[in-house]
């Protein structure tokens, strides 16, 4: 499930640290990383429209140089690497390349951005999560910023340090659950299971939680389980902060088109508003 990863990058400040943190997925089966840079056609258009000089060949050259640094690092960690530069609409290109390369996971980083910027531009990550059928691991930049200053190798145990698995017992959640043993292999040792109750009886939910708890303990996790009342997305976000989880794992209901636009799914909201990294499984 982690054997081949697509990592689209814009060479932002935290792009390289995130990539470094991914090497610990090796013990969870990671073999190959596809590095992708998309020359954003809208950005090119705007730069040209603003009268600024744009030299595509030069951009490709600079990109290649930057990718070499990433490439060397990954190769020294015995991972296969493929680099790709394409151009077009960023979200579409990422989704397309993920399909062409037949990867099993897309990893992206996400800034905490200004609301106004979201309104006018939207985020690439949100677009990818909405459009791609693949699981997406979204690494939140400021989670890393908190531990910045320490050794970069620290990213590794930190990203998978404490997993919060939010389940609503649906098939989507079940699919997400399959990733838990792999995360154990990647270094995760603590797990928090959360179910936000909207319906069903308390006893029934507690029974399910207990069974799940035992299942994870068998793998080797230190587990706590919690049954909470309230609005799912808000409770999950609050609980992740309260428990200081490093990663939220959850399934994603592909809501209908209209409903998806109007209210968004729980996972979309968690992705948007939580300051924790999120692994969304469809």
């Amino acid at each position: 499930m982690f054997s081949k990863i697509l990592y689209p990058t814009k060479f932002d400040e935290f792009s390289f640290p995130i990539l470094k943190s991914l090497t610990c997925l090796k013990s969870a089966g990671l073999r190959e990383i596809v590095l992708l840079y998309v020359i954003d056609e809208e950005a090119i258009y705007y730069a040209k429209e603003s009268g600024l000089p744009v030299d595509i060949e030069q951009i490709k050259k600079t990109t290649n140089e930057k990718m070499m640094e990433y490439l060397d690092y990954l190769k020294s960690n015995e991972l296969s690497v493929k680099t790709k530069i394409t151009s077009g609409k960023v979200v579409n290109e990422i989704v397309k390349e993920a399909e062409i390369e037949n990867v099993s996971l897309i990893v992206t980083g996400r800034h905490k951005r200004h609301m106004i910027d979201e309104l006018f531009i939207g985020s690439t990550t949100d677009g990818v999560v909405k459009k791609s059928p693949l699981p997406v691991l979204v690494v939140k930049y400021h989670t890393i910023r908190m531990i910045e200053g320490k050794l970069t190798e620290q990213f590794c145990p930190n990203l998978f340090r404490k997993i919060l698995y939010a389940t609503d017992w649906s098939e989507h959640s079940e699919r997400a659950k399959k990733y838990i043993p792999l995360l154990y292999n990647a270094g995760a040792r603590e797990a928090v299971i959360v179910h936000v109750m909207e319906d069903g009886s308390k006893e029934e939910n507690e029974k399910k939680l207990n069974a799940l708890k035992q299942e994870l303990e068998k793998i080797g996790f230190k587990v706590t389980s919690h049954l909470i009342h309230g609005k799912p997305y808000r409770e999950i976000i609050n609980f992740a902060s309260q428990e200081d989880a490093s990663l939220i794992l959850m399934g994603c209901h592909g809501k209908g088109f209209i409903k998806g636009i109007l209210i968004g799914s729980v996972s979309q909201r968690v992705l948007e508003y939580s300051d924790r990294s999120v692994l969304i499984v469809k």
Binding site: S50, L52, P53, T62, I116, F120, I121
Partner: peptide, 19 residues
Amino acid sequence: ALTWGRPLLEKVGLHIVQL
């Protein structure tokens, strides 16, 4: 400039314009 110009400029990114 502050609302729409800002994200547009940000989108252009750092190494698209090389001068």
